[in-house]
Write a protein that binds this DNA or RNA. Structure first.
Lengths: 197, 197
DNA sequence: GTCTATATGCTGATAGAC
DNA sequence: GTCTATCAGCATATAGAC
């Protein structure tokens, strides 16, 4: 792991972030020491402070960037016209995006309580922005008479919890591909917001 | 917080468990020290070791007892005959039981990675036993032609994630009572496993 | 840009007095 | 049953050499 002295600032920064993601996801923020992160990167602990002012900011930045990327990617995605296609689009996007980066997703959910109050508020603001994207789709579909949802806010939370839950059990190379899973979940979501039998 | 010297073993044990639940749920296992737990109880740190051999076992016991109580309470509950009523029964039970003890639920989900390998296996075994209760209900309903579920295992995971998600946003004394929430979620679950339009 | 060395303080757990 | 005192180790963060 040892690395020779030299100029590496352009690559060490990302390596620090990558090592922190791996270790925070596996052991938890509080259980991981700056020494462990440094060892993973191949530098001494002191050198980390060239790339982050402190451990707390390192965690906050990981979560903030994750949520900003999520929102940016979603917003850049072409949007279908009708509500049913919009909901399908959201479900497929959510599952695909979250399965693609399980460690960041895990950190963003599990380490909220380790954020400073101010950092916590900003992360929650970003999360609410994402949730409101789905809530808007549901509201429009409800108005159009396509969806029959007893409560928009609850349906939003229920669907997001259901979709994000895939990350807790999905295993690459298992019985089902990501597309299989996305298809099956979309089928359940579709029926959960459609008129009952 | 200070407490006078004396014989309190019958109450101190439960108080230690209660304090650990509160603190682990709020700050996370790794971030909580034995000294903090002791201070919350009103004893010195050394006294805790009369009630648990070590910190790891304290965590494990909290999670194990929580899951054992969950299973025991579920198993003692009268079971309806037809699959639709069984599913409704499960949904209402799950939401009610989990909203009643949010801290234990939180710990049981968030602190899995802080368990020793052996302890982890036992906790996972208990969780699987609970999940299989729902899976069995879905399988029977599928056989009876009442449910139309594309994949039993996935539907089980999807429904449990959806129901447990209530704990992340529900606030006592808010817009909706627990019964309102249980009713709305049951409505969505029912439609998600019924034949589509 | 990275290193070594260090400050200051907290950690889990134990020993022995009362 | 609880206390005080303590061990040995690791934590975050910084200072200064190269």
């Amino acid at each position: 792991m040892a690395r020779k002295t030299g100029s590496h600032s352009k690559i060490t920064g990302p390596l620090v972030r990558q090592a922190a993601i791996r270790l925070f996801a596996r052991h938890g923020y509080a259980a991981v020491s700056m020494r462990q992160i440094a060892a993973e990167v191949g530098v001494q602990a002191g050198a980390l402070y060239l790339y982050t002012p402190d451990k707390q900011t390192l965690l906050y930045d990981l979560m903030r960037v994750h949520l900003e990327d999520l929102l940016e990617t979603w917003e850049a995605r072409p949007k279908p016209d009708d509500p049913m296609a919009q909901l399908q689009n959201f479900c497929r996007f959510h599952i695909a995006y979250h399965l693609e980066r399980p460690e960041q997703v895990f950190i963003a959910y599990m380490e909220l309580r380790n954020l400073d109050e101010e950092n916590f508020r900003e992360i929650e603001r970003l999360r609410r922005r994402y949730e409101s994207e789905l809530e808007t789709i549901l509201a429009r579909g409800q108005d159009a008479g396509v969806f029959h949802v007893p409560d928009n806010r609850l349906a939003t939370m229920a669907i997001i919890a259901m979709l994000t839950g895939v990350n807790t059990w999905y295993q690459e190379g298992g019985r089902l591909t990501r597309e299989d899973v996305a298809q099956i979940y979309w089928d359940m979501v579709r029926r959960s917001v459609s008129a009952g039998q």
